[in-house]
Simulated scan of single mutants.
Amino acid sequence: MQNTLKNIGWQRIVIKVGSALIAPHRDGCSSQYLLSIANFIVRCRAAGIQVVLVSSGSVAAGAHLFNNVDSSSMTVKKAMAAAGQSEMMATWDRLFDFNTAQVLLTHADLCVRDRFESVRDTLTALLNNDILPIVNENDTVTTDKLKVGDNDNLSAMVASAAYADALIICSDINGLYTANPHVDKSATLIRDVARIDANIYSMAGGATSDVGTGGMKTKVQAAEKAVSHGINTYIVNGFSESTFNELLQGNNPGTLFHAIDNPMQDQTHWMKHTTKAQGELVVDDDFAMQKQSDNLLAPQDLVNVIGDFSAGEVVLLRKENGDKLAKVKSNYSSCLLNFVAEQDNDDLSEKLHDASAPILSNQFVPLGS
């Protein structure tokens, strides 16, 4: 088995485990499905493969401690996460005879470049000291503006931050099917995906578990993020022990999304797939993107400013008809740009255009419509 493991070619992997595996009955954590996953991690590490574990489950683990409460309340869910996080970590610790580390993140820790680099440095330091990072979204403190929302997409962001070779996303079915196999008995498993397009997304339905927050669509979104960074991504059945034996033998037990041949540069990937647009700059439908980024947008091109953002935050540049042009950092706040957009004053436009900083920075990523 050792030789087979070495032939896989992995040096560092990220494995994402969902709430339904950790607390399948919402009455606390259970090792029922975690033993085979833990054994897989142990065997990978024994073969010299570094592992990062992205683990959901804090809300589901803490739910049984709250009686006669509105479980849909965001405040209650945060309290459940706070109560369940320690139980979730303790459950994993019982399954390993090596050191683990808790890494709690919000989207704000990833969409600011300095903080993203800090997360990367921390993960690298833990791995280089033979400590298993266990990552989860910090549900206790996160808000709508700061949250990723699901750990499928979080796992892809972590995989890119960690420079992983592979991302393994555990599901409650064998992978991506042509239709929902719980509903359509004629649905067939898709073994390999070379390109993620609208057709692939059309096959991804909603959540099939009543415990987790992510469904097949979020898993495909995560795969798209990962493969564009050069990371092979598997969606597999985490409830089946044979899944992990197959992976260790170098086989594909589910759906393999193949990494693209020419991965995005790290900065470009971060801007497109990790940052979240905090507002929108709207231009006329006849607006044409300039090749030179310092002339990307003139004051007179602005038709509308949507949202509340500060200077230096990422915004979406789009046309009035909804076509998305680019994600870009704004050098000015929404307050100032709103004022500019409302003016019909060539002198004001010229002054801003001639200012030391253009409206948009040279950090931008073109988007398709």
Score class of each variant (00 low, 15 high):
Asp172Gly: 02
Ile173Trp: 04
Ile173Tyr: 00
Asn174Ile: 01
Asn174His: 15
Tyr177His: 04
Thr178Trp: 12
Thr178Gly: 05
Thr178Cys: 09
Thr178Lys: 07
Ala179Phe: 12
Asn180Pro: 07
Pro181Asn: 02
His182Lys: 14
His182Trp: 04
Lys185Trp: 03
Ser186Met: 07
Ser186Trp: 06
Thr188Met: 10
Leu189Glu: 03
Ile190Leu: 13
Arg191Thr: 11
Asp192Ile: 13
Asp192Arg: 13
Ala194Phe: 09
Ala194Glu: 12
Ile196Phe: 11
Ala198Phe: 10
Asn199Leu: 11
Asn199Trp: 08
Asn199Pro: 01
Ile200Met: 13
Tyr201Val: 09
Ser202Arg: 13
Met203His: 15
Ala204Ser: 01
Gly205Leu: 05
Gly206Ala: 14
Ala207Asn: 10
Ala207Asp: 07
Asp210Arg: 12
Asp210Met: 00
Val211His: 07
Thr213Gly: 11
Gly215Ile: 04
Gly215Gln: 04
Met216Asp: 01
Met216Glu: 06
Met216Thr: 08
Gln221Thr: 08
Ala222Phe: 07
Ala223Asn: 09
Glu224Tyr: 07
Lys225Phe: 03
Lys225Asp: 02
Val227Cys: 02
Ser228Thr: 12
Ser228Ala: 07
Gly230Cys: 04
Ile231Asn: 03
Asn232Ser: 12
Thr233Val: 04
Thr233Ala: 02
Tyr234Ile: 02
Ile235Gln: 09
Asn237Phe: 02
Asn237Lys: 00
Gly238Tyr: 03
Phe239Glu: 01
Phe239Cys: 03
Ser240Thr: 01
Ser240Lys: 11
Ser240Tyr: 10
Ser240Cys: 06
Glu241Ser: 12
Glu241Gly: 05
Ser242Leu: 12
Phe244Glu: 07
Phe244Arg: 05
Asn245Glu: 13
Asn245Gln: 10
Glu246Pro: 02
Leu247His: 00
Leu247Arg: 01
Leu247Gln: 06
Gln249Glu: 11
Gly250Ala: 05
Asn252Tyr: 04
Asn252Ser: 11
Gly254Tyr: 13
Thr255Cys: 06
Leu256Gly: 06
Leu256Pro: 09
Phe257Pro: 05
Phe257Glu: 06
His258Val: 14
Ala259Tyr: 08
Asp261His: 13
Asp261Ser: 14
Asn262Arg: 15
Asn262His: 15
Asn262Ala: 15
Pro263Phe: 11
Gln265Gly: 06
Asp266Met: 01
Asp266Thr: 03
Asp266Gly: 05
Gln267Gly: 00
His269Gln: 03
Trp270Val: 01
Trp270His: 00
Lys272Gly: 04
His273Asp: 08
Thr274Asp: 07
Thr274Phe: 01
Thr274Gly: 01
Thr275Met: 08
Lys276Val: 12
Ala277Leu: 07
Gln278Asn: 15
Gly279Ile: 08
Gly279Gln: 09
Leu281Pro: 14
Val282Asp: 08
Val283Met: 12
Asp284Glu: 13
Asp284Asn: 15
Asp284Met: 10
Asp286Tyr: 15
Asp286Val: 11
Phe287Thr: 08
Met289Glu: 04
Met289Tyr: 15
Met289Ala: 15
Lys291Ser: 14
